[in-house]
């Protein structure tokens, strides 16, 4: 149990470093800023208790926020996404033979399941993010384009990372 928490902590730090030191410095035409760090919440085991899910989402969002001087923005969208995770898991289909060692990733759940799961949660994250980032209704069109573009880009990035690093565990 302790070892798995250590794994989670390392993953937490690595994803934040990746986001803050590399992804945030890539300029993708001004429309896209893919939030790769949400992979942390996506990959938490099915068994994760609710309080841990929400509190780690809060800590994750807040860490990203202090680096981009946008206190509250990433935090709010992250917490919202974590709250919606159990609903999305039920909608996409929870594993039938519910066993503790199963993780929401490609090796355990298959590519199709993971793509839908990631897509829905990323869209929800981007929806909350877009609305909170710019309150103007006049910018609704741009918010929508950004939301779709960022979500698709993040999806591709996350699936690629899944394939690269996770499949070896099997």
């Amino acid at each position: 149990m302790n070892k798995s928490y250590l794994y989670l902590f390392v993953r937490f730090v690595v994803l934040i470093a990746l986001q803050v030191l590399i992804i945030d410095h890539i300029n993708l035409g001004g429309y896209i800023n893919p939030p790769l760090y949400i992979l942390f919440i996506l990959l938490l085991p099915f068994e994760t208790p609710g309080w841990f899910l929400l509190l780690s989402a809060f800590a994750l969002g807040f860490s990203i926020d202090i680096f981009s001087n946008s206190v509250g923005l990433h935090t709010a969208s992250c917490v919202f996404m974590a709250y919606m995770r159990p609903t999305i898991i039920r909608a996409v289909g929870a594993p039938a033979d519910y066993e503790a060692y199963l993780n929401p990733g490609i090796p355990d759940m298959g590519t199709q399941w993971f793509v839908f799961y990631t897509l829905f949660l990323t869209l929800l994250h981007q929806l909350a993010f877009g609305i909170l980032e710019s309150f103007y209704f006049a910018e609704a069109g741009i918010i929508f384009i950004r939301m779709i573009a960022s979500s698709l880009f993040t999806l591709v990035l996350i699936v690629l990372i899944e394939y690269l690093f996770m499949s070896r565990k099997k």
């Binding site: 609710g50 309080w51 929400l54 509190l55 989402a57 809060f58 969002g61 807040f62 946008s70 206190v71 509250g72 923005l73 935090t75 709010a76 917490v79 919202f80 974590a82 709250y83 159990p86 909170l132």
Partner: peptide, 19 residues
């Protein structure tokens, strides 16, 4: 309903920080 209430508390806290 601790999941929902914890969500509510954290979400309100972060939106207050933002606004």
């Amino acid at each position: 309903h601790n999941f929902f209430f914890l969500f509510l508390v954290l979400e309100i806290l972060s939106v207050v920080l933002l606004v």
